[in-house]
Write a protein that binds this DNA or RNA. Structure first.
Lengths: 199, 199
DNA sequence: TGACAAGTGGAGATGACCTCCATATCTTGG
DNA sequence: CCAAGATATGGAGGTCATCTCCACTTGTCA
């Protein structure tokens, strides 16, 4: 998988410059308002070089996203190691909202990419999904969370939060989504909520 | 608002043709794989005519989306008139999943547009939002649903469902999201779910 | 240090988007 | 019914972002 060849010193430097500038532009939310060529210039690199390192906008985004996700996964692991399962899950989800809130531009960018070509980001997402799945599984194991809903549902809810981040009352609503999910995850309680599954 | 001038017979016909073809292409999920010019040809119309009626892709989408939303709002009103508030809400949300499931291409298209330029669809969305808000408000009024979460949170969750519609286990996960939301909406239950709001 | 490999940058081809206007089609008053 | 004016059409062509290509520079290794 990561059988990448050594990469010349020169090249690594340019690549780093591109990533650094990309992170900056991401956070400013200007990723899509910028001509891709201009972005190259902005990073002090020729167009050709940009395209060599990142063949598409999405590839560049994926690279940034990757580090982002790695950080979040670390956090999930730390929480899981130091808190009871249910609290770890709650803390993680609350933290996600904080994180998105603190990096609005990045959230906007990623939401767009997700919707556009979710395939390209799927690999990065997988790690995040795994982290959430682990958190939920642990809580199910110790009986604090119901076992009849898929962790994917939590991912979907998170996705909704990220994708809708430009709503006026975003922060409050996002917190409410988490509240609903966490309360909904408590064991039992399915009276008015049977899916009318057809065939 | 709708102070549109009469529109010539000819023009109306073309416009209708465009909308019909658009709906078709939407449902097939090919909306973004098609050159906009080619779409005009496909609908049997010149490029100029296409652009006159719908200045942008988004404008065209908005028109299709508008009818879509009108149908959903009707449904919400009917449910609200014939069922107890909580059941109406549940039925509506379950029905949304069915609807999206039955119109995958459309869901994909709308999700993309939402993320890209949510501003353009905001007007259409507003009607849907109002419908959900009404359903929730009624359920809050008769005491079956908690009053401390915003209806916007439900919208966000729905958004997540729509946006993630290409996940492998979509249907089951979508049902689970609704289950979580509905169970979470039941009164009380906030022990492990306090938002750690900062300032 | 020389020679080969690896990487660079930017000029220009490509192709999608949108504008513009000469032409065609409706409509309406006489 | 028919002219005249208003309204709408379509597609050729301009504009501009994207991406390719290759002559040249820079790094690496013996």
């Amino acid at each position: 998988m990561t059988a990448d060849k050594p990469l010349r010193a020169d090249a690594r430097r340019k690549r780093e410059a591109l990533l650094a500038k990309a992170r900056e532009v991401f956070d400013a939310g200007e990723f899509f308002d910028l001509r891709f060529d201009d972005f190259a210039r902005l990073a002090g690199v020729g167009t050709g070089t940009l395209y060599r390192h990142f063949p598409t906008r999405e590839a560049l985004a994926e690279a940034v996203y990757h580090e982002e996700v790695a950080g979040l996964c670390d956090r999930a692991r730390r929480l899981q190691a130091t808190l009871p399962a249910a609290e770890a899950l709650a803390a993680f989800l609350r933290g996600m909202v904080d994180h998105i809130d603190a990096h609005t531009g990045l959230a906007r960018t990623l939401a767009t990419l997700m919707a556009d070509r979710s395939g390209d980001l799927a690999e990065g997402s997988r790690a995040l999904e795994q982290a959430v799945t682990d958190l939920v599984a642990a809580a199910v194991r110790d009986g604090t969370v119901r076992d009849d809903v898929d962790a994917g549902a939590v991912l979907m809810a998170l996705h909704g939060i990220g994708a809708a981040h430009d709503r006026p009352g975003w922060r409050a609503e996002a917190d409410d989504v988490i509240t609903l999910v966490l309360d909904g995850l408590r064991r039992g309680r399915t009276e008015m909520a049977q899916p009318a599954r057809r065939n």
